[in-house]
Nucleic acid binder design. Sequence first.
DNA 1: TCTGGGGTCCTAGGACCC
DNA 2: TCTGGGGTCCTAGGACCC
Length: 400
Amino acid sequence: VFVSDSRATILHADLDAFYASVEQRDDPRLRGRPVVVGGGVVLAASYEARACGVRSAMGGGRARRLCPHAVVVPPRWPAYVEASRAVFEIFRRTSPLVEGISIDEAFLDVRGLERLQGSAVDIAAGLRREVRGSVGLPITVGVATTKFLAKVASAVGKPDGLMVVPDGQERAFLDPLPVERLWGVGPATAGRLRARGIRTVGDAARMDEEALVALLGRALGRKLHSLAHNRDPRPVRGGRGRRRSVGSQCALDFTSRPPEAVDRTLVALVDRVARRARKGGHAGRTVVLRLRFGDYTRAARSTTLRDATADTRPILEAARGLLADVRPVIERRGLTLLGVAVSNMDGGGVQLALPIEGERDRALDAAVDRVRDRFGTRAVTRASLGEERERGLAPWLMPE
DNA sequence: TCTGGGGTCCTAGGACCC
DNA sequence: TCTGGGGTCCTAGGACCC
């Protein structure tokens, strides 16, 4: 197919059953057999295991009941990180415009590469061959005119597939799909839609935007209305997106443990979060304590500091204060999960988190993005912002 | 269905300011 | 003294995603 003038140039590339596929690649005995990665909770299930109904995020006990002959293996994080790195290298060789979404998926915009590499479909096929050939993993690629539709296409094309939605065929492709395929429709939203008889994307597309807004709220209603019509203006953005929070949590039944044990866990969590924040050059103003109680209800408590920080001590102090406030609830209901996060990394407005030592340039880049986004101007550059700050014209850009 | 760990975004109400 | 409209920030909760 020659589609050099097609607008379908966005690729969504998604590794299939990623962790499980890495395990099958590295241990030939696992090939062709149902494989479950993770014991307590299923982190990934091979397609053989999925055939028995095993899904990720499922409890390990249920998975074993559904698929008694499955091989359960513990996760090997370093192997997954290395495999991901190798695949992303191929992504970046394929297109200069790559937006990573997670460890195993990315968007690529291949517009303008046709003369060099052939049509978007050719490029997608080549990408799949190369990932299979040099990394040894199956990958599915969706090709379409928008990010959203490329993602839907890859989901429909799984596993080990190539799914193209040609320019002009978008509605025909989307309409019959269940609404759950829309990004942002989970069990709760699907239930509300179903209660109104909306089962397919086509049903949603036929609704007025106001009706969807009335049903689901402003943001979600508008978004779903747009997506159902394949309106998704988001460009593929290269580079790292700006991180909004850094957190860590630990699921554990603390009910029979003394308060000192809870505090020790808190200290360890804060230490890990602060370390990771510093390593990534992040600092935030809001400290969040996440809790799950004995009855599996959840709660979060937060407090906002005067200044952004990535230091262990102020974060720990704040977290201890929050914990003390919820102590009575914990004593009544028990505690089964404790988490700490540092968020509010941009301090609101266009203000920037305090940069950690050595992070000046990255902080300036982020400030440039932020100002451009906020004011819709391209007139600002890193040099001009840095200069403004230096001359004291915009001290809020990078408080030190 | 007996539930991990890492995140994102949205909503709503209250405090506060002009 | 009472009131309006417009805005920001903070907190809490919820839904969703991988």
